[in-house]
């Protein structure tokens, strides 16, 4: 298994890293963590930088060395005791619902569909084709970047609770230039804040199904 010592600084992990995009400082990136550790830093010194990671998992897919960056960051967070501040609320995986044919009928060009990032990235190979087909078939917008990574909202993350990640700024980037009248979310935790920031109606994917009379759990 590759570790932080295998990072040779290609910068690819920065390309989809929400933390780096906000800070524009390499210390706030998986590459920055790896290089700091390679040059003698310890995780306690890196506490501030580590606390900014929202653990969306996009970097794992971009790393050419196949380093389990998210796993290593989680382990480092445990060492700093920062992880203890995290809630233990598990995010439900709505991928099965997104495969329901009813979704095809109910999603339209005025919708912005927010994929739950960490579950998506953890199963990227199996899921990316499905979401891309859904997007092409319905014409809806999605929170996908050019790499087909999901742009995470960061809502409910440890970093948000530590106030080391600016969720509002992240959502502004997510919606920049996207035209939509309604938002559909997979993660129920996203609903309130997305509605507040965008002023648009926000539905959980299960609610979208119910709206049209489909029977879904």
């Amino acid at each position: 298994m590759a570790s932080f010592s295998d990072c040779y600084g290609c910068s690819l992990c920065l390309l989809s890293c929400p933390m780096w995009l906000q800070r524009r400082d390499v210390r706030f990136s998986p590459q920055g963590y790896a290089k700091a550790l390679q040059h003698g830093a310890d995780v306690v010194e890196m506490r501030e930088a580590l606390s900014a990671c929202i653990q969306c998992g996009a970097c794992d897919l971009l790393c050419p060395e196949k380093i389990d960056l998210t796993g290593l960051i989680a382990a480092a967070l445990q060492k700093t005791k920062l992880a203890e501040a995290a809630g233990d609320e598990a995010v439900s995986d709505c991928f099965a619902m997104s495969c329901d044919p009813a979704l095809l009928q109910n999603l339209g060009t005025d919708d912005l569909y927010i994929i739950e990032a960490s579950a998506f990235h953890a199963n990227h190979r199996q899921r990316v084709g499905h979401y891309e087909s859904l997007r092409q078939a319905t014409g809806c917008s999605m929170n996908l970047d050019l790499h087909r990574m999901a742009i995470a909202t960061g809502i409910g993350s440890l970093s948000e609770s530590l106030q080391s990640f600016d969720v509002k700024k992240q959502i502004q980037w997510l919606i920049q230039g996207r035209s939509f009248q309604r938002i559909i979310v997979e993660n129920p935790a996203d609903k309130t804040m997305l509605a507040q920031i965008t002023g648009k109606p926000v539905l959980h994917v299960s609610e979208l199904m119910k709206l049209n009379g489909s029977a879904h759990a």
Partner: peptide, 15 residues
């Protein structure tokens, strides 16, 4: 000036 900060830039893509 800390080594952990300067070490990030120790080489380039050529390696």
């Amino acid at each position: 000036e800390q080594r952990a900060d300067t070490g990030i830039y120790a080489t380039d893509a050529g390696g």
